[in-house]
Amino acid sequence: MRVSLFITCLCDAIYPQVGEAMARLLNRYGIRLDFPESQTCCGQPPFNTGYWDAAKESAKTMIRAFAESDFVIAPSGSCVGMIHHHYPTLFKDDPEWLKKARHLIEKTYEFSQFLVHVLDIQDVGATFPHKVTYHPSCHGSRLLGVKEEPYTLLSHVRGCELIPLPFAEDCCGFGGTFSVKLPDVSGAMVCEKVRHITETKAEVLVGLDMACLMNIACRLQHEGKTIRVMHLAELLYEGVKQNA
């Protein structure tokens, strides 16, 4: 059985600890992750900016990299959403690659989806005695439909006080190249998101997507705020490690 890690370019380059937490957590369940080295990026940045040729090249590296995998899991609802929602559009006029894309789609899961739906795990046995608030990233929740899974997992973490985030479903303002092209609107959005997070008085912000969490963390840092920002996999693994 080959369960492969799709690390996502952002975690690969900037947040490798997220991939490590996933691998170590799953290892406890006997899932020895496989890491196909030929993977690069799902192609979302050029796709969303309108450069579909570049997106196709990128998508093809992904399809090739995971051709032999039985399951593919990634720490990002957005990148998995790209595969599920946009690969069929990208290859709509190319039956050969469309077929291959569909194979990748049916075996690709976002991290919390994989735990809850594939492994049927609600409680990883973690303890995390902190005030936590959760930001549901737009692509994960709206494109991919991952809504309840993180709450299911968090609700079983001992000591974790989950505080609802006001206007949780509002975008953090990242939007990839959007934040570069219209930085002032993006800035207004992330400032507001940080204001809502601060209002909760949580010690930790948790999420399922490092792109959004990066955007928020970078703003928090700019404001000199010390709220810790974590991927759910990091939080769960830290909570499990503590118990061991």
Partner: peptide, 27 residues
Amino acid sequence: GWNMYRIAPKIANRSFRDSWDHLNQEL
């Protein structure tokens, strides 16, 4: 424009792909 509102993150000292072999052996 990005850094008008944020402090951009650094590339990690070791990427995930560079640390994989070592991590995998441990696992």
